[in-house]
Design a binder for these strands. Structure first.
Length: 399
RNA sequence: GGAGGGGUGGCCGAGCGGUCAAUGGCAGCAGACUGUAAAUCUGCCGACGAAAGUCUACGUAAGUUCAAAUCUUACCCCCUCCA
């Protein structure tokens, strides 16, 4: 198991056992489809496509790894279909490292709406999650309305068919609302599901994939510790931190630390669903190796371009909104020092115009920038760690 | 020349006696977005005002009425059809 995978971490920030010190580290994550240098950012290509960007453009932006989603591809076009086309790598034309999420997050998002709504206590009232019990979760398909059941075994089968390098155990993404008792029961059930995921994974293992376990426990330190130890005790290749991370940034940072304090540091550690620039600095300093998040690619489609501190219009935001009228006459690129394909040729004024004119190119071009931005950020973080530089200092430039 | 239809806020377009500062849509101005049901969603959008509110508004003018974007009359303009 995991013969074709390897993780070598070089700690430059301090002793892992000494949690009073920062724990940032660099690593090399080897997969059958190439190497990922960590800390790294994983871009979300939920439905077998990073929206609006081709694999070649991802490569040009020096992307190392992308992700797709089990639930979506299961609903349509089906994992057998993709298997027949030679697997997800071949199907979508991405030959680099790849991860598939288990569909566990959809138990949360289809049941309760967006994370923001959940945290703010707003719920849509319309739920596509029909039932959740010991066996698994029953959904109404977002695609055609049909009833679908996802179980740990089913998720493993689908992810096997898809063939991503990294696959993820099936879990319940526990919402923030709900008391400790529910969080604990949900965590225990997720553990049972993850154990079943691991069992199914081992049955189907042909060495081409590596499995992530997920730490749960909500915002409760004792539960996070318990969950981390549970994952440590099982033969997962790597560990992800999942479930709710709280309702505020500071709570999120506390929860990450609750988990990383107890996670086996010999394995890669992934933080699920987080991608704010400042969040990444905190995560890295707490020992996170990889991140994934829809944020960079989603805000791009909404006119938001990620920029370093020097190029911002608002001290509270990590991006500029190119739809704003102030960019109508701004002939500069998004960032003066950016080497992305977009910043080489397009001005803010042009991108502003494209957004106003509803031209598809705007979404594409901003996306290219944001992807390159994240890759540059992660590379600078890696370089800083390797050179024993100061992340705190680097952060003042990027945040 | 004859017959008919119409002129509503930046644009398109509802309303056809009071609950209308006037439904919608577009445009405009902002905001949100963190394991993607998201090229999405939310708010504002006559003027002044923080708000309560006040004022000015449905081609123009006069009238009927307690009350008119809505009814009457005249005028101006646009469109369609017939000669």
């Amino acid at each position: 198991m995991y013969d074709k995978f390897n993780f070598n971490a070089i700690s430059c920030g301090g002793n892992f056992a000494d949690f009073s010190r920062t724990k940032e580290r660099c690593g090399i994550l080897e997969t059958p489809h190439g190497v990922v240098e960590t800390p790294a950012f994983i871009f979300c290509g939920t439905k077998a496509s990073v929206k609006g960007v081709s694999p070649q453009q991802l490569m040009e932006a020096q992307t190392q790894i992308i992700l797709s989603n089990t639930y979506h591809l299961f609903s349509y076009p089906g994992s057998e279909y993709i298997k027949k086309r030679g697997g997800l790598h071949k199907f979508m034309g991405w030959n680099g490292p790849m991860l598939t999420d288990s569909g566990g997050f959809q138990i949360f998002s289809l049941g309760l709406g967006s994370v923001a709504d959940e945290i703010k206590g707003k719920r849509s009232g319309v739920s596509s999650l029909l039932k959740i019990d010991e066996d698994g979760a029953t959904f109404r398909s977002y695609w055609d309305g049909s009833t679908q059941i996802l179980t740990p075994e089913k998720s493993m089968e689908i992810q096997k068919n898809l063939g991503a390098d990294f696959i993820v155990a099936f879990d319940e993404c526990t919402p923030f609302h709900g008391d400790k008792k529910y969080t604990e029961l949900s965590m225990e059930r997720s553990h049972r599901w993850e154990k079943r995921s691991l069992g199914e994974f081992i049955c189907r293992d042909d060495g081409s994939q590596a499995l992530y376990g997920i730490v749960h426990g909500g915002v409760h330190a004792d539960l996070r510790k318990h969950s981390a130890e549970f994952i440590n005790d099982h033969a997962f290749f790597a560990t992800a931190i999942g479930g709710t991370l709280g309702s505020t940034k500071s709570q999120m940072y506390e929860v990450i630390e609750m988990a990383t304090t107890h996670i086996n540091a010999a394995r890669p550690i992934h933080l699920l669903g987080i991608g704010g620039i400042s969040d990444i600095f905190v995560g890295v300093s707490l020992g996170i190796d990889t991140f994934d998040c829809v944020h960079p690619t989603r805000i791009a489609r909404h006119g938001g371009a990620l920029v370093k501190r020097a190029f911002r219009d608002s001290p509270t935001r990590e991006h500029i909104n190119l739809k704003r009228s102030e960019y109508e006459h701004d002939d500069n690129p998004i960032e003066l020092d950016c080497d992305c394909a977009t910043c080489q040729v397009f001005s803010r004024a042009y991108l502003h115009y494209l957004l106003k004119a509803s031209e598809l190119l705007a979404l594409h071009a901003i996306n290219i920038h944001n992807i390159r931005f994240m890759n540059r950020l992660m590379k600078e973080i890696r370089n800083t760690i390797k050179n024993s530089g100061s992340l705190k200092e680097l952060r003042t430039i990027w945040c």
